[in-house]
C-alpha cells in the first residue's frame, strides 16, 4: 500500500561490509536521474503525482541532490523519499532545508542495535549515533514547522546481524521512527533458522508500537505460503492443518485458514520478492504446495 517508485542515485555501499568487499561508490549523473523522474511522472495518470524514492548513492554526498529533488517537486511528485545514512541531518539547518525542499519521507539504514555493531558492519565509525541523531533532529525540526514526515528504519538482514534484529527494532522505535522495513538481502541466509528472529522482530515492533514489514510485505503473503508465513496476519488463531505439523516453521507459526489464499493475495498484492522469501523459507520440502494442500 502506498508504493514508491524507486529511482537510483547511483551505486551505494550502505550494506554489510562483512558480506563482501565494497564496490566503487558511483553517483549517477543528474540529467539521467531527472530524465527517469520525468518518465515516471509522464506515465503517471492520476493527480496528484507519483511517490518517488531516491535510493542507492548517499543523497547528501550527491553533488546535484538539490536539483534532483527540485525536479521531483516540479514534476508533481506527491511524496519524496530519501534513502540516507542521516548523518547530514544531525545539522538542524540541513534538516530544515530538506523539509523546505519538499522531502517528507526518509529511509535510514540500521545494521545493528549498538554503535559497535552497526559501525563495524557499515565500516563507518560514528555512523550509528549519527543516524539516530539525524532521525531525531529531522523529526524535531518537522514538528517545529508543523510538517508531517515519515521515517522508516531499514534493516538489511544478513548472517552477521540476524540475531540483533529484534534489538535493532527496539532502538529504532525508541528513536522515533514511524515504521521498520526488514530487507532480507543476503541470499546465503538460511531463512528457516532466520524465521524466528524475524518473527521476534515483528512482535518487538508491535509491543513498541512500531509497525515492522519484511521485504515490503507482512511476512510474505504469496499463494499457498501464508500457512507458514502468516503468523503476523493470521485470520484464525491456532487453526492448523495436519500438514503444518511437518513444517519447519510449526513452532513459530500460529496457522491460518486454508481458504484465505485468494483473499490474502487480493488484499496484499505481494511483490515478486515475496516469492523468493517464501521459497527460501520452505527449503526442504519436496513439493511444498502439495504438502500445504493447495494443489
Amino acid at each position: 500500500m502506498l508504493q514508491f517508485i524507486d529511482i537510483s542515485l547511483g551505486h551505494s555501499n550502505a550494506t554489510c561490509a562483512r558480506c563482501g568487499p565494497p564496490g566503487a561508490e558511483d553517483p549517477r549523473a543528474a540529467r539521467e536521474v531527472i530524465a527517469e523522474i520525468a518518465e515516471v511522472s509522464d506515465a503517471w495518470c492520476t493527480a496528484p503525482g507519483p511517490n518517488i524514492g531516491l535510493t542507492g548513492f548517499e543523497p547528501f554526498r550527491h553533488p546535484d541532490i538539490q536539483e534532483i529533488v527540485d525536479a521531483c517537486v516540479r514534476m508533481g511528485a506527491d511524496r519524496i523519499r530519501l534513502d540516507t545514512e542521516a548523518r547530514a541531518l544531525t545539522d538542524a539547518e540541513t534538516s530544515m532545508s530538506v523539509l523546505a525542499a519538499g522531502v517528507r519521507h526518509l529511509r535510514v539504514v540500521l545494521l545493528g542495535a549498538t554503535g559497535s555493531q552497526h559501525d563495524s558492519l557499515a565500516s563507518s565509525p560514528g555512523s550509528f549515533i549519527a543516524a539516530l541523531d539525524g532521525v531525531q533532529t529531522f523529526t524535531a525540526t518537522a514538528r517545529n514547522v508543523n510538517a508531517r514526515v515519515h521515517v522508516t528504519a531499514l534493516i538489511d538482514v544478513c548472517t552477521h546481524n540476524l540475531k540483533a534484529v529484534p534489538d535493532t527494532v527496539t532502538v529504532a522505535a525508541r528513536t522515533g521512527v514511524s515504521d521498520v522495513l526488514i530487507r532480507v538481502s543476503d541470499p546465503s541466509l538460511d531463512l528457516r533458522s532466520a524465521a524466528p528472529w524475524l518473527e521476534a522482530a515483528c512482535d518487538t515492533g508491535i509491543v513498541n508500537a512500531v509497525w515492522v514489514e519484511v521485504e515490503g510485505i507482512p511476512f510474505g503473503m504469496a499463494t499457498g505460503w501464508e500457512l507458514h508465513l502468516a503468523s503476523t496476519y493470521r485470520a484464525v488463531h491456532g487453526r492448523k492443518a495436519e500438514v503444518c505439523l511437518s513444517c519447519a516453521l510449526v513452532d513459530v507459526c500460529s496457522g491460518a485458514v486454508l481458504e484465505a489464499s485468494d483473499r490474502i493475495l487480493e488484499t496484499f498484492q505481494p511483490p515478486a520478492c515475496a516469492e523468493l522469501l517464501c521459497e527460501q523459507i520452505s527449503r526442504g520440502f519436496d513439493s511444498p504446495m502439495e504438502r500445504c494442500g493447495h494443489v
Partner: peptide, 9 residues
C-alpha cells in the same frame, strides 16, 4: 499507514 499517507506535499 496513516503516517505514511499524510506525509505528502
Amino acid at each position: 499507514l496513516q503516517s505514511r499517507y499524510r506525509a505528502r506535499l
